[in-house]
Design a protein around this nucleic acid. Sequence first.
DNA 1: GCGTCCAGGTCTACC
DNA 2: GGTAGACCTGGACGC
Length: 317
Amino acid sequence: LVRVLSSSTAFTLKAVPPYNFSLTIHKPAGWSMLTPYEIFEDDVLWTAIRWLSHSLLGLKLSSLGTIEKPEIKCEIFSSRKLKAGEPEELSRDVAWMLRVGEDIRDFYSLANSDPLVRLLIKDLYGMRRTSRLDIFPMLILAVTLQMAPITRSNQMMNLLIERYGEKILFDGREIQYWPSPKRVAETSASELQEKCKLGYRAKNLRWIAEIIDSGFPTPQELDSLSPEDTKVKLMELKGIGEYSADIASPHFGFALDVWSAKIFALIFGEKVESPRSIIPKLRKMAEDRWGKWKGYVLTYVLNDLGNLSKKLEIDLS
DNA sequence: GCGTCCAGGTCTACC
DNA sequence: GGTAGACCTGGACGC
């Protein structure tokens, strides 16, 4: 039941500064980077990636550098020895995933004219968004977040991982990872509904799993499309609307739900009698104010609620 | 204890 | 092209 990964290889990645390793791989809001079951201890992350749509690899990340001279050590663990060329390919994929080549100086220059951005980057200097190599976990996240309190969303996700996910053991750590789309596609909707308490979401999730399994662009392929085309592609999936597409998009969309809409309404000083109906207006305001960096602002805000509440003197919690 | 309400959206069926 | 209403179900809440 647990796959032991005993073969390993390592490489280092240099990043465009500023790159805060700790804040990036272990977000202050408690968001996991790749799986809720990953382990973060003493500034080291043990986690997992699904590579080339099938094999599960162990990933251990640690920092060799600083925020201004960032260097990340990546150790990869696999069940078989990697073939010639594979380490290089993995290195490119992990570099893309960790966004080490991304230059966020344009985002930070918004601080010159935007007091909110100024506060955010003071608190979370060098924090980056990261992507993932497989799209299915983000779609599971998006689907389970719909119409449910966060505790229930977590319950659904954990049940899916525990019942249909995979376990790997490497470097003395055991990590559980999300189920493959194939595994979910092979399971009946009624079983998913019953065992994972998915409710009406079961049918959609199974249908999505089938599509992903039978061939859907990878996050890296979607990244090469425009943000708009990516969204259109994702929204072809049943049960994936604008919010879910923004969550799953590697272009870092501005994924507003009623929870985050309330927060941004307060930040913009808008009245909040109906958070759901104000979402389109808030989206427009974010687009006008932050443009392509709106997704970054969203991540920074949601990871800085405590400090923002104090500094803006409004209760965002 | 037991009923009632509704949640970190999406789709469909109507205007 | 815009918008009520339905959708699973567990936990919070009122009695």
